[in-house]
Design a protein around this nucleic acid. Structure first.
Lengths: 204, 204
DNA sequence: TATTATACTGTACATATATTCAGTATTTTT
DNA sequence: AAAAATACTGAATATATGTACAGTATAATA
């Protein structure tokens, strides 16, 4: 996906707002009216540019034949697996670990995510993460201090705050006074960061 | 919403499938092609019937000006409003109170829901409800003890545990030791139950 | 420096499209 | 039994709309 200019972004926004408001795409004239252009060709050229860059598709000849390609398009959710956080064993996407799937849009959580992790226990209760909550996990090893991470120590998987104390020392901090910090010396122990939490879903 | 006939249902399905596939509504001719009609007027009369019964809206004069009035829309997701929980003022669906909308399937929370409420403050923190969390609210007055309810006292809206002590006494209980129970005598005070929480959404 | 992309106005026109009118027939409602 | 709704075909038409062509101007790129 190539770079978008500010004017093209305005046109793209206009299309999506119009779609949301009316339920169908705008005409060239509609876009002109909305953005103050005085020639339908202004809209036309922007649409062509947006199509060339891959942001939209245009059905030739069809009136209002504009469709927004994509990722921040609300239509068409995907199935995301729900993985149980068992005391031992990594949260892999192997079929036997998938409890069920949940359908929701890709962009449901800001930065995108890969699966839901079902939380066991209350070690993160002060962070508002309760038993049976589903954490939206984005697979990444790029985590910062303060991030809620899904970490694996040997075969044990836990959800904790990440805190790098020094180049070799990482602390995994629970959000519950009944639990103790886990201090890991990277020289002597293996720490796998499976991903980080980008959201939470609770169903009563 | 009146009864729909089987042919009208076919037309409605056709519109939704076309929308999902192309991103914009069909023309009369498109519907005919899809369903085997030989006259555009066949589609037209069905559309008029669907509009009369409230299933769709038609923008007069606009090409492809069909929008599906989706309350029980089984296709794709729906747009749910996010309403800010201001200290004073009821959570109405008036446009000025809607911060934005979130697209997700109707059945995303078990029993269905009507809108998201953005929580302010930490009065329910021990129930895992944090500042800025979005509560999925189902509009109902049918609440049981222990339910997390959205209640209105005068113009103040709060989220609390519901606990009916006797026929006239209701307690609204926070989940935070820094807050006090609210005891309401229904004979002297007005209590409005806006709905109850059926889920929670948090986006980091 | 030449070229391409961006960002417009303005006019024109073929066609895509909504929409009306005229019929026919069956079913449902009043 | 009459009226209205449903379910179509078929033709006609005004207009809504995409789209090409002719310009002007500035910024970015090669």
């Amino acid at each position: 996906m190539k770079e978008i200019t500010s004017q093209q972004q305005r046109v793209l926004d206009c299309i999506q707002i119009y779609l949301k408001k009316t339920g169908f795409p705008p005409t060239r004239a509609d876009i002109c009216k909305e953005l103050g252009f005085k020639s339908p060709n202004s809209a036309e050229t922007h649409l062509r540019a947006l199509e060339k860059k891959g942001f939209i598709s245009i059905e030739s000849g069809a009136s209002r034949g504009i469709s927004v390609n994509d990722q921040n398009n609300s239509f068409g959710g995907d199935e995301y697996p729900v993985i149980g956080l068992v005391a031992a064993g990594s949260p892999t996407l192997a079929e036997e670990n998938i409890e069920r799937t949940i359908n929701c849009p890709k962009s449901f959580f800001e930065s995108g995510f890969d699966y839901f992790l079902k939380v066991r226990g209350l070690s993160m209760k002060d962070a508002g993460i309760m038993d049976d909550d589903l954490i939206a996990v984005k697979k990444t090893t790029d985590v910062k201090n303060g991030d809620i991470v899904i970490a694996r120590l040997d075969d044990e998987v836990t959800v904790k705050f990440f805190n790098r104390k020094s180049s070799n020392i990482v602390e995994l901090e629970p959000a519950n006074e009944d639990f103790e910090n886990i201090v890991i010396n990277l020289e002597s122990e293996q720490l796998h960061i499976e991903g980080k939490s980008v959201g939470l879903l609770r169903r009563n």
